[in-house]
Structure formats: structure tokens, C-alpha cells
Design a protein around this nucleic acid. Structure first.
Lengths: 215, 215
DNA sequence: GTCTATATGCCGATAGAC
DNA sequence: GTCTATCGGCATATAGAC
């Protein structure tokens, strides 16, 4: 493995720091010094701090979302072929697997998920708008698919249930993050101790599917 | 109603702005000018920007957590009296009702919930440590209660399920927030349109209970 | 308790030498 | 592509008049 380029080092450092202190809470000085680069390097490689954030988000989200849509498409067309509606579990897995299988082997995906949390929270700021722009097509496709798996639900119920699923998954990632980070571990040990990611994923999938199918 | 004090005006403005742009993204200048107060007022009334955040959090969380623990205690002792374990729904309601009934009549609680999202995301920063300090006793009490309602679950499963419940609720609040805020509405209308809070709460409670009772 | 003025320092961004 | 020096601005915090 050759040593990573300055640009990649900046992306890695920015990801780490944005996840810890948020976009606004992280200075370009902190990023460049963490990456061992000079102060002007962010402007040289990305143009601005904001453009750096965009690349940080896209670097992780675009491959995950590609996998999500492919898995969903595969499940949907197989269901059509078998003359049945897609199952709720198939849809949940298409949304969750691309994220959680990566999280199991990559520390940085867990770090990254913290940035997603932050992005979702800051709706109308730079961060939130960027994030939603990236996620929009995926959200629309999955709500539509849920409509096939859950007949009798109106549009509003489907939107709500989709977002419940997202909420459960985000919080699942948050717990993985807590469990892996020594600093969090100390803070949370009493009520979120040593979490095994296998157990978490298994329990989470069953929680979400049961919730989506409720009533 | 007498006009509100400078201190209350500062708390209100800080809550609004922290929710929109985060703690780091909000300047004391923005807060004081929004509140119609002078620049030095935050340091005079609170000592620092950080101490202001602490008061913003406690002002909302302490009454809610008091109600949560009272409702939980009432449910638990009634169950004992009737010689049965508490139901999952009773526990979910004890945790969620104090928050969501307030959210139905108070715009500011919805705003506030955004700050909770931010707090949970920034685990090891000022914000996260503050938040967890306030929530700790509640978290411990509810995980213990879940153990009574869900026999046969080990400690780890109970912790995970508790956090799934929290995740679902947080995301539910996030959606209420989106639905009420005109700026968010524009961004999200395709996949989270006009959300009725009655429908959301009803669907959410059933989602959570089904998820918790899964398997 | 209010407000102005200001101290002190970090911010993002850029110019220009190498 | 790297790095230094620096610009102009805004940050938090405080001192001190009223």
C-alpha cells in the first residue's frame, strides 16, 4: 500500500473531526494539522470548507446508496417474477445491509454515521441541504417499495413508517459507535455496555420488521 | 402576562438558534440580537455561552424527566398491586407521553427536540456530556422496567431495545419538527408531507411496542 | 441591570515565493 | 503541489460608564 495522498488524508481527517465536533465546530486549521498538511491545502484541493464537506459525504454515501438501490431492485423484480409482493424484511435488508455490513469491518463507516446524524439534525443549514440532496432518490424509492409490501397503508403512513425504520437504524449505528469508541464507552457503560454488532443487527432487524408490520 | 425577562428571552432565542444551527454554529451575537438584548447580557446572566446551553437543556428536560419517572413509578406499582408484570405499552407511554403531549401544544418543545438530537450526536463534547448527565437516572430506570415487562431478555438485549425505542421517538420528533417548520416543509415535502401529530403518535406507539415485543 | 467599547484571539480564505 | 505570511472579519469575553 502506497502512502495516501494529501487529498485523502484531508478527507479522512475531516470525516473524523466533523463526526466529533460537527461541521461548524471544526476549523480548517484543526483538519489540516490533523492531516499533517499545510493550512492552505483545503482551499487548494477542494476550493472551500463546504466543498470538502460535500466530498466527505459523497465518498461514503454514493456507494452505499448505489448498493441499496440495486438490492431493492433485485428484490422487487424477484418478487414480481414470483407473483408476490416484496416482503418487509427484503426492503429493510436492502436499506440496512449496505450500511451495516460495511460498518462491521470498517471503523470509518461508524465514524461517518455520526456525520449523518448531524446532517439530519441541521435541516436548513448547509449540511442538511447537502445531505438531503444526496439521499432524496433513495428515500423516494424505498417509500414506494414499502407501499408494495404493506398494502392498505396510505401515503402518509408509509412515509411515517419509512422514517421510523430510518430512526431505528440511525440509533443502531449510534450505539455501535458508542460501543467502539473508548471515550463513549466510559460515559455509557451502564446502559449500553459491550455491544456485539451481530446481536445488535439481528435484534434491530426483527425490531424494525415487527414495527413496520404492526397492526 | 407580563413581558418576559431578559434572561427568559435569551433562553428562548438560544433554544431556537441552537436547534437551527447547532451550538457551535450559533454566536452569542446572534442570540443577543435575536433576543433584543445587548452583547454582554449572556455573560452577565449565565457566565458563558456553555452555561447558557446547560440552562437551555435543563429548562425542558428536568420537568419532562420528572413526569417520566412519576408515570413509570405509577405504572410499576399498579402492576405490582395487580400481581402482574408491567406491560410494554405502559413503559413506552411513560417515556413518550411526557414529551409528546407537550409537543402537541408547544412549538418550542419541538424546536427543543432538535437540540436533543444534536446533544446525542456529539457524545464526547461539552454538549453530549451535559446531556447524558441529565438523562442518566431516567435511562437506568427505564431499562430496569423493560426487564420486568420482557422476561427472558438478557441485559444486553434490554439495553438495545431501550435504545431502539429512543431512536424511534427521536426520529418521530424530528418528523414533527420537519412538518411544522415551513423551511423544512419545502425541503421534505415529497417524502414527509403534512404530518398529523395524532396519526404520528398513534402509529409510532404501535411501531415501538411491536418492535419491543418482537420474537 | 444595561450598554458601549474594546481586548485578544481564531476564523476561512488568499497571494505569492518556492 | 507545498508552504508561509497575512488579510479582513467575527468570535467570546470583559472592563467600566451610566
Amino acid at each position: 500500500m502506497g502512502k495516501k495522498s494529501t487529498k485523502d488524508a484531508l478527507l479522512d481527517s475531516a470525516e473524523k473531526l466533523f463526526a466529533k465536533e460537527g461541521f461548524h465546530g471544526t476549523s480548517v486549521r484543526a483538519i489540516t494539522s490533523e492531516a499533517g498538511a499545510h493550512l492552505a491545502s483545503i482551499n487548494y484541493h477542494f476550493g472551500s470548507k463546504e466543498a470538502l464537506l460535500k466530498e466527505v459525504l459523497e465518498r461514503r454515501l454514493l456507494p452505499i446508496n448505489k448498493d441499496r438501490l440495486e438490492m431493492l431492485e433485485a428484490a422487487l423484480s424477484q418478487a414480481v417474477q414470483e407473483g408476490r409482493p416484496p416482503s418487509v424484511m427484503e426492503i429493510v435488508r436492502a436499506f440496512a445491509d449496505p450500511l451495516f455490513t460495511r460498518a462491521r469491518t470498517s471503523e470509518s463507516i461508524i465514524t461517518f454515521s455520526n456525520i449523518v446524524q448531524i446532517s439530519l439534525t441541521q435541516h436548513d443549514s448547509t449540511v442538511g441541504a447537502l445531505f438531503l440532496g444526496i439521499m432524496r432518490p433513495v428515500i423516494i424509492a424505498f417509500i414506494k417499495a414499502l407501499g408494495l409490501a404493506l398494502p392498505g397503508h396510505d401515503k402518509e403512513q408509509l412515509q411515517l413508517k419509512f422514517h421510523f425504520m430510518v430512526g431505528s437504524m440511525l440509533h443502531g449505528m449510534r450505539m455501535l459507535s458508542m460501543a467502539r469508541n473508548p471515550a463513549h464507552k466510559k460515559l455509557h457503560s451502564e446502559f449500553a455496555g459491550n455491544i456485539d454488532s451481530e446481536i445488535l443487527m439481528d435484534l434491530m432487524y426483527r425490531y424494525i420488521v415487527a414495527g413496520l408490520e404492526a397492526e
